[in-house]
Design a protein around this nucleic acid. Structure first.
Lengths: 67, 67
DNA sequence: TTTGAATAGGAATTCAAT
DNA sequence: ATTGAATTCCTATTCAAA
């Protein structure tokens, strides 16, 4: 189920340093979620985990830690 | 010169919504900086303009505006 | 609606070369 | 040290299919 898988993704990125969708895909697989990279990509988008600081993948200087 | 070009990049991303290196490359070209995508990629890295919130392109939930 | 397979698109790296 | 050309790598999208 999609919701379980996306929860798993949130746990994974909280607990591990994941920097590719392939890595995420493999870790999901080892936890019983066998999906393709396309699905991982879609999940990432739906979870708002885009590797972007601002809107729509626009280049910006990364935000600093809050004071 | 590299420094001038990188300054141009900072100006460009401040003034425009740029979301691909190709776009950046074209706008640089129109300002006299004719470089390839490889160079733009290197500049972006050196300027810390990575499309990433945390370290090393790791997936994270994007940071919110400071209170 | 959700997914996979395949493809396209964008970015980073390699390999020289200057 | 800096760059370009080519390649590789990673991600998004398309096109069906269930």
């Amino acid at each position: 189920m999609k919701n379980r898988r996306q929860n798993a993704i949130l746990e994974l990125i909280r607990d591990y340093k994941i920097d590719t969708q392939e890595m995420l895909q493999e870790m999901l697989a080892s936890r019983g979620f066998s999906v393709t990279q396309a699905t991982v990509s879609r999940d990432i988008r739906e979870l708002n985990l885009v590797k972007s600081v601002g809107e729509d993948g626009i280049y910006q200087i990364p935000c600093r830690p809050c004071p």
